[in-house]
Design a protein around this nucleic acid. Structure first.
Length: 712
DNA sequence: GCCGGAACTTAGGATGCTTAGC
DNA sequence: GCTAAGCATCCTAAGTTCCGGC
């Protein structure tokens, strides 16, 4: 590891931020770790442990409910039964709790006390001090969050929209399930089990105490065996730098089944006329038909891309005839697909079991490899099946055909002395390599993005675990250097060199807001997303004062996966002054922020509705085509407003929901598992309260090596 | 030092299974 | 017994960083 004090970052252009360079890379390694582990740490950590506290609280409640049930007896109704939603709300927000328990206050205290312990424990583990300047920042942020919660409770502000959006989502789901229900009812005659069988089933369901105990013992035994068999690679000596393995043997990737032609009686229609498609065109048409329920197929880019690629798969005759996607009717293909999905859903237990066993067989054969004479699980041993590319957001390539991968496209990587996997009959591999400086087992090039796709090991493998361990070790080292980095960028904020100042401001944002670094991207190849270093002038707005705060920066941009980042952040005077300077004589960009205003859209919609009403009134009883045209125009304008509002509301909901997603992401990728393990050992909390089986496997190295006294 | 490709890690969405609540 | 919510897992898109060649 190089000295991270020597921050060496080059700049490309003032508004486009940092460019790649060796110094940047070294610094990024450290700084990404810093931002993920320190910048967002407090929030992620507090949220995470609040979740743990919530789980523990839930556990307590469940036990109490059971106790109450026992006490009340079986004939006494369900006194202890409480809505799950109410329960979790009571714990999570520590307010408006569950009155049925009649101990709201006691619980409030318990929750507050566990939250206090959690935050306190986190502070102890981190051993970090807050800088005076940061203190203001953090306190204000916290204050805002509380305010927002209050708004949520009263049904005002963003939560209102979020709830509406959630309701829309829910409605969509309900509609789908209602549809499914109808279909299910239709099938009921066929599928419903005879009554006798049902009653027999319920009898067999009941297990005796002995059986339950035997099952428990077996589970315990299996767990112990698994533990004994676990490869304790962390207790072994590491290989020399760059060497990933000494021996690697596997069966090669598993290829998806070949295309199965549709039944003869299924038809595709073009311009109302029945048309029999050739196999290639039919296959690609089916990919589109399968997605008809998805919003993707309504997007212009998706439709155009699909149509362009679909025509490439057609015969000359088909291509001459099919020239307009609007005239294509995939209805029968779509219904066929829906029917298949429904059939899948309605499979009997036995059918499911047969399928499960067949899948297990495939996994047993292709899903494992021998790595240095240890059996390791492969993460993605299946070759990605063909289909239509589902790029996120406004991806310019969405809808393009992802072609079928053949063995001739695949490079195999294994040991020279291993048994080289056999390609499927009649095929051969593109290449067989013996490169032990890489971790992949097979690779191919994806035709849509030109990117290399890899077959790699599972998260619980040595190769992945070792990397994870290294990552957290880097973060650990950063602890002693972070003060120096901060001091340097603070100093650089007043540098005479514009480039240095910009770097300092970028660092300031990454440190305070945990933004992604933001690399350059090829225009037209991917959606227009940015990170900190690739922010454009249009993505920020400066406010001398806002909501009683001075020097506020308003961020609004699309980040990774086209997830919108919107934040208003008070910054130091120097940062603010620098930003003003950086924006001088540059194009301000679009009026993005005006149009994004959640109340503004509503006003627009009200206006559009009023105008439509007026136009209708004027056109009533008048056959003038001009007036009818105006009505149509106003109607479309109103629909557009409605769609835009809905889109924004859904985005707002997604932002709220993403908080939960971000929490699990933090747990899996950013929080050093040794901290969590040590905390559990100290607090005598079972590890399975915070990590599920997969996560315990992934972090086996941390679980085994961490003692109570571990310090980050 | 720059550039581009390779080699990774991170993370959203789909799907299927399980469980709580009615 | 039914349903919805929660959860786990799989799949793969979308990022970041490394590294070798010029």
């Amino acid at each position: 590891m190089k000295e991270c004090g020597a921050v060496n970052i080059c700049l490309k252009s003032p508004q486009r931020g940092l460019q790649r360079g060796t110094g940047v890379k070294k610094w990024h390694l450290l700084h990404t770790a810093l931002t993920r582990l320190q910048g967002s740490f407090a929030v992620a950590w507090a949220l995470f442990w609040r979740h743990v506290a919530s789980e523990m609280e839930k556990d307590k409640k469940t036990k109490q409910v059971k106790r109450e049930k026992r006490e009340a007896g079986s004939g006494g109704g369900t006194p202890g039964r409480v809505s799950k939603k109410v329960k979790s709300r009571g714990v999570k927000k520590s307010q408006g709790g569950d009155e049925t328990y009649g101990e709201k206050e006691v619980k409030q205290e318990q929750v507050e006390s566990s939250e206090f312990q959690v935050d306190d424990a986190a502070r102890l583990q981190l051993g970090s001090k807050e800088e005076p300047a940061d203190e203001d920042f953090v306190q204000e942020k916290r204050g805002k969050k509380r305010k927002r919660q209050k708004e949520d409770e009263s049904g005002k502000g963003t939560s209102c929209s979020s709830e509406k959006a959630a309701a829309v989502k829910k409605k969509k789901r309900t509609d789908i399930s209602a549809e499914a229900k109808t279909d299910k009812k239709k099938n009921e005659g066929k599928l419903k089990m005879p009554k006798k069988e049902e009653s027999e089933k319920s009898v067999t369901k009941k297990k005796t105490k002995e059986e339950i105990e035997a099952a428990r013992t077996l589970k315990r035994k299996l767990k112990e065996e698994e533990e004994q068999q676990r490869w304790r690679w962390w207790e072994e000596e590491k290989y020399e730098a760059g060497i990933k393995w000494k021996f690697l043997e596997h069966k090669g990737p598993y290829f998806p089944p070949e295309y199965n032609p549709l039944p003869e009686n299924l038809n595709f229609y073009y311009n109302g006329e029945k048309l029999k498609l050739g196999l290639r065109a039919e296959e690609v048409a089916l990919y589109f038909a399968q997605m008809l329920d998805h919003e993707y197929t309504t997007r212009e880019v998706f439709r155009n891309n699909f149509f362009k690629d679909w025509r490439k798969e057609m015969t000359l005759e088909e291509r001459m005839l099919i020239t307009d996607l609007e005239k294509c009717d995939f209805g029968e293909y779509h219904n066929f697909h829906k029917q298949k999905v429904e059939e899948r859903k309605n499979r009997t237990k036995e059918e499911k079991q047969v399928l499960k066993e067949a899948n297990q067989k495939i996994t047993d054969e292709y899903g494992f490899c021998m790595l240095d004479h240890h059996r390791e699980r492969i993460g993605n041993f299946k070759i990605e099946p063909p289909g239509l590319f589902r790029g996120r957001g406004d991806h310019p390539k969405q809808g393009l055909l992802k072609k079928r991968i053949r063995p001739e496209d695949v490079i195999i990587n294994c040991s020279k002395e291993s048994h080289v996997p056999e390609p499927p009959a009649g095929h051969q591999w593109k290449e067989v390599r013996h490169d032990n400086t890489v971790t992949w087992l097979a690779s191919w090039t994806d035709n849509v993005q030109g990117a290399t796709k890899y077959v790699m090991l599972n998260a619980n493998s040595k190769l992945k675990g070792e990397k994870d361990w290294e990552k957290y070790e880097v973060a650990r080292q950063l602890k002693s250097r972070v003060d120096g980095i901060r001091a340097q960028y603070k100093d650089d904020l007043k540098s005479k060199q514009m480039g240095t100042r910009q770097r300092a401001v970028a660092l300031y944002f990454i440190d305070k807001l945990a933004l992604r670094a933001g690399n350059e991207k090829e225009e037209g190849e991917t959606a227009d997303t940015v990170g900190c270093c690739s922010l454009r002038v249009e993505h920020i707005m400066l406010h001398d004062s806002l909501d009683g705060e001075k020097c506020v920066v308003e961020f609004d941009f699309l980040g990774k996966d086209c997830i919108r980042y919107y934040n208003k952040v008070p910054v130091t005077k120097r940062v603010f002054k620098n930003l003003k300077l950086f924006m001088e004589n540059k194009q301000p960009g679009d009026d993005l922020f005006d149009r994004l205003n959640i109340e503004g859209r509503k006003e627009q919609l009200t206006l559009a509705k009023a105008e439509l009403k007026k136009a209708k009134k004027e056109a009533k009883g008048n056959s003038d085509t001009k007036l009818q045209f105006v009505v149509e125009k106003k109607k479309k304008a109103m629909q557009r407003c409605e769609e835009q509002l809905l889109k924004m509301e859904v985005q707002a909901t997604d932002r709220e929901e993403n908080k939960e997603i971000a929490l699990s992401t933090s747990k899996l990728n950013y929080l050093d598992p040794r901290i969590s393990v040590a905390w559990c050992k100290n607090m005598e909390v079972q590890l399975d309260k915070i990590y599920n089986k997969t996560q315990r496997d992934k972090f086996a190295w941390a679980i085994h090596m961490t003692e109570k006294d571990f310090e980050f």
